[in-house]
Design a protein around this nucleic acid. Structure first.
Lengths: 104, 104
DNA sequence: CGAACGGTTCGATGGTTGTCGAACTGTCTT
DNA sequence: AAGACAGTTCGACAACCATCGAACCGTTCG
């Protein structure tokens, strides 16, 4: 069912995480996922003006970089920041990125 | 005298910092500058196999993103990580990035 | 002075990335 | 069953980026 694979945390490279974060859209998405709870993808796009395909591309980028996981839930998908794993592998990274005040 | 301008810290955006860090070469350079002391540019390239122009490009990218400053010293240039300013503006970011296991 | 040195700049090139619309897949609702 | 719905995939396209060699610039040293 859940055939949207995210990489094993052991294979996640810092430079790939940084590259995934180095985009305004994805940074904002990650900001909305900060608490580590799953959210419907649609909700993450509030305020963002993107086509469906572009949004899908960003979700895929985040997932393949190891930042998020996708949970299929009927016809909607929930997306979740892999906080615990990432905090263990890159201590302090997410807090610093998320703590640096997004301008709304 | 040739000055190489870096942006005012107030104008430095997180996403630009992340983009500058999201490259293996630059990540390694920043790792060598971790202690915030100035180093000759040549010394930062040890172990890296780059043409002079490529190296110059990466130094420029780091400087323009606000990560480093350049100090002209005769015919050599010293490069310095702007640790204090960055630590104040993005608390925890550099420690987490630098602390995450550099190879070699 | 003139050559070597440390770096930058320029132009070109090939690869990557962000964006979109259109077509498609699978799920829910009526 | 027929739509509506949420999302992905597929080209396509333009912008960006890492890389290089060659030419260039200012400094030091013979």
């Amino acid at each position: 069912m859940n055939e949207y694979p995210s990489p094993d945390i052991a294979d996640v490279e810092l430079v790939d995480v940084l590259r995934a974060l180095a985009d305004p859209v994805r940074l904002q998405i990650v900001g909305m996922l900060a608490d580590g709870k799953p959210y419907p993808k649609g909700d993450c796009l509030m305020g963002l003006d993107l086509s469906k395909s572009t949004a899908s591309h960003h979700f895929r980028t985040l997932r393949e970089a190891g930042l998020t996981r996708t949970i299929v839930h009927g016809r909607t998908h929930d997306i979740q920041l892999r906080r615990d794993e990432l905090d263990e592998k890159f201590p302090g990274l997410l807090p610093s990125v998320l703590g640096s005040a997004p301008p709304t």
